[in-house]
C-alpha cells in the first residue's frame, strides 16, 4: 500500500492534499515507532523475569571452593604459581622481588597484596568450639594491630594482633589474647601465636583461600600442638 499511496500522491498534486498526506505519513510512522517501543518494552519485561546473572564474587568463591577440594596441589611449605600450567615453589620465594615461577605468578600484584595485614584489619565470625573452652558458639575476632615487612626478607609480613572472643552473652565476658606472628604470601596463611611474655593459651590461624582478602577460614588453636580448639568463617569487618 505504500506504493499505491505514492502513486496517489503523484496523481493529486494539490497543496492541501499534499499537506494532509504528509500529516498522515508522520502520524503513521510515529505510530509505527510507538508500536516498536511497545514491543521492545514487552520483550525487556519478559527478559527481566528470568533469573539475573550471578555476580563475579559468587563465581570466584565457587571456583575457589572447587579448587580447595581438588587439592592439595603442592607439597608442604610449597604453594602454587597459579595460571594454566601448575607449578609449585617454596613459600619462601613468594613476593621477594625475584621471579621464581615460570609465569611470574609469585610476584603478581594480586598475590603480593598486603591487604590481609593492613593495620586495623579485623576478621570476625561465629566460632564453634570443639574443645579447650566450654562455650556455645559466639563471636570471635582477630584484629591486626601492627605489621612490618623487612626489606631483606619480603615473603613474610610480621604482624601483631589481638584475638578476642565472647564466652557468655549474658554477662558479656570477653577473653582477649595479644598475639604475634606472620602472614605468608604464598600460602595466604596468617599464623599467630602468643605475644612474647604472655601465657601460651591460644593462637590463631586464618587461611585466605576464598580468592580474596575479605573472607578467610580461621581457627583458634593451641599454640604448641596446633590442635584446633574452634573454627570460624571470617569476614573482614
Amino acid at each position: 500500500w505504500f506504493i499505491l499511496l505514492l502513486v496517489g500522491l503523484a496523481a493529486a498534486d494539490s497543496e492541501p492534499f499534499k499537506e494532509r498526506q504528509f500529516e498522515y505519513f508522520i502520524t503513521n510512522q510515529n505510530l509505527h515507532v510507538d508500536k516498536l517501543a511497545h514491543d521492545l518494552h514487552e520483550l525487556e519485561e519478559e527478559f527481566s523475569k528470568y533469573s539475573h546473572d550471578v555476580d563475579d564474587k559468587t563465581v570466584r568463591l565457587l571456583k575457589h571452593r572447587v579448587h580447595n577440594l581438588e587439592g592439595p596441589h603442592c607439597p608442604e611449605h610449597f604453594s602454587e604459581c597459579g595460571g594454566l600450567v601448575p607449578q609449585c615453589i617454596s613459600d619462601l620465594f613468594f613476593c621477594d622481588g625475584q621471579k621464581d615461577c615460570k609465569n611470574g605468578g609469585d610476584e603478581s600484584p594480586q598475590i603480593c597484596s598486603e591487604a590481609a595485614t593492613h593495620v586495623g584489619s579485623s576478621y570476625t565470625g561465629i566460632a564453634t568450639w570443639s574443645g579447650c573452652e566450654e562455650s556455645a558458639p559466639h563471636y570471635a575476632v582477630v584484629t591486626i594491630t601492627a605489621s612490618e615487612r623487612k626489606d631483606f626478607f619480603q615473603s613474610y609480613v610480621w604482624v601483631r594482633g589481638v584475638l578476642s572472643f565472647e564466652v557468655d552473652e549474658h554477662i558479656h565476658t570477653v577473653k582477649s589474647y595479644p598475639l604475634r606472628g606472620f602472614y605468608n604470601f604464598g600460602s595466604h596463611v596468617l599464623l599467630m601465636g602468643p605475644e612474647r611474655g604472655t601465657k601460651p593459651v591460644y593462637g590463631a590461624r586464618c587461611k585466605f583461600n576464598m580468592g580474596d582478602f575479605d573472607h578467610a577460614e580461621c581457627e583458634i588453636v593451641n599454640p604448641e600442638s596446633l590442635h584446633v580448639c574452634a573454627h570460624f568463617f571470617a569476614d573482614r569487618y
Partner: peptide
C-alpha cells in the same frame, strides 16, 4: 525465539527509515 521477534522489529524499522527518506523534501 526472542531473537526472531527482534529481527522483525529491525525489519519494521528499516521500512520506517526508507519511507522517511522518500519524503525528506518539504518544509516539515
Amino acid at each position: 525465539d526472542t531473537m526472531k521477534s527482534l529481527r522483525l522489529l529491525l525489519a519494521a524499522l528499516a521500512v520506517v527509515t526508507a519511507v522517511l527518506a522518500d519524503h525528506h523534501e518539504h518544509d516539515h
